[in-house]
């Protein structure tokens, strides 16, 4: 299994784990400070950052690293039909 597949699977898992319905009615405070659902989402957010670190480290698309090809002659980026004169 490629690194890219593993990282994608990690994000898909995180996507579904966001819905922490098991704690939706639990008012307990973690460490006496954070409501348990809030504490869960803090950890979830840190895992997301870790996931993006994996992307930057192992799944970086090399095709963007070089200079993009030069535009075709006459392409000024204004797009589509020529402007009305």
């Amino acid at each position: 299994m490629s690194k890219r597949t593993l990282v994608t699977a990690f994000f898909v898992l995180l996507f579904f784990l966001h819905q922490d319905s098991w704690w939706k009615n639990d008012p307990r405070l973690v460490l006496g400070v954070l409501p348990v659902s809030l504490a869960y989402h803090v950890v979830w957010t840190l895992l997301v950052a870790f996931g993006w670190l994996l992307v930057a480290r192992f799944c970086w698309p090399d095709r963007f690293d070089g200079e993009p090809p030069k535009p075709a002659p006459g392409n000024d980026g204004t797009g589509g039909d020529r402007p009305v004169r």
Binding site: P69, P71, N75, D76, G77, G79, G80
Partner: peptide
């Protein structure tokens, strides 16, 4: 960078060939 776009609309116009 390749085509000189500055706004989204420039990209959309070019991508869909529609002023």
């Amino acid at each position: 960078k390749q085509h000189g776009y500055v706004t989204q609309i420039e990209y959309f116009r070019d991508r869909f060939q529609s002023s």
